[in-house]
Design a protein around this nucleic acid. Structure first.
Lengths: 212, 212
DNA sequence: CCTACCGATCGGTAGG
DNA sequence: CCTACCGATCGGTAGG
């Protein structure tokens, strides 16, 4: 007679533990299989509960998605901050921030796409909106600091921040969508690491495409 | 007794007409409901055939997707070329090209996402790969021309092209994903049109973020 | 938080 | 190119 090994104590998940477990499970599904892989049933199974249990913590699938996206923005913020802390100089900090962004996208493609697939309009959950603002704030503050120090051109920080954001966001998407194979020049031929490529593009943005 | 109005002559779709019709139908589904809305059954219904008919023209759903993406790259190429032809000066042509890209994404968000969701690796259909190359080539050639004329800095055109591509690609994604509401500065406050915003960012890339 | 159940949808195939 | 059918999956709810 086999010994029963319950996957969880009978009174588990009392204080929001299941909520956290479901977010982590959904995160894993997203990272491994992209958006189609994220199902409430799948998350429930990974968390070791019945497929009806998640409804105790999330009204519907969208609610779980929003919670995952919120967590994602926080993780993205951490990635950027960690890389920036390791940067050698003030000038290198913007490139480190950019690399933190791209590295996050490359490490968790399905996750990355899902986060930004959540519209951050008026009617989105407040915590999600705030988490998004914080992530954007990291980049914006770095840009603002560069302006204050006279390293970057004076003006509205949001202008420069948006240019930088667009660049790294686009590079991230192109990288995780396997589109960079289109580029056939030295850049691709030399097989730059993603880090080198990111650095190079941000430097180009800093100094500009224009001649002399 | 109601008159029967057949939706199609009995011998329709003999010469690849259905194939074209299914691509157009899939395109419409994508444009209206995004990736989840694209189903073989839905495309068949829109085309007025049974849900088993598409398998005569496409081995599976991925084959339809590849055909749609190919068509999408061609449409994107057209958008860029049309805007460039309407540009006033050589210097304005790069910004026009950028606007063609962003405008396409804004006009067909679900379509745009799907196109670039198709990996263009070694094992993708050759026509799809070629269509992608042609679209990228439009941007690359414009950059190369700027270098030839001494307007843009000398060097590998692919470097500059990738920077520009990343910028417009990122801006496109941010725009269609409703993420620009995060940006709260003058840029957003003044409610720039998408065209003005694109112009501004490309100009920033051209001249660089750096001071002086 | 679980079992049992529903309706709906989908990709794909058999067989003609 | 059609009808009929399969297995699988999913979101969600009833009822306990």
């Amino acid at each position: 007679m086999p010994i029963r090994v319950p996957r969880k104590p009978p009174d588990a998940y009392q204080h929001g533990d299941l909520r956290r477990a479901l977010i982590q499970a959904g995160l894993k599904l997203l990272s491994e299989g992209g958006a189609p892989a994220l199902t409430l049933r799948g998350a429930a199974q990974l968390a070791g509960v019945s497929h009806a249990a998640p409804y105790r913590h999330f009204r519907d699938k969208d609610a779980l998605l929003a919670a995952i996206a919120e967590e994602g923005f926080r993780t993205l913020t951490e990635h950027m901050r960690r890389e920036m802390a390791a940067a050698g100089s003030e000038a290198a900090r913007l490139r480190a921030c950019a690399w933190g962004y791209v590295a996050f996208a490359r490490a968790h493609p399905g996750y990355f796409r899902t986060i930004f697939g959540q519209p951050l309009g008026e009617d989105c959950p407040a915590p999600l909106r705030e988490a998004g603002q914080e992530a954007y704030g990291v980049l914006r503050e770095q840009i603002a600091e560069g302006i204050r120090r006279g390293r970057l051109r004076a003006g509205d920080p949001d202008d420069l921040a948006l240019a930088c954001w667009s660049l790294v966001h686009g590079l991230s998407h192109l990288a995780i969508d396997g589109q960079l194979s289109q580029v056939s020049g030295d850049t691709a031929a030399r097989e730059l690491t993603a880090r080198e490529l990111t650095d190079r593009l941000v430097r180009l943005l800093e100094s500009g495409l224009r001649a002399g």
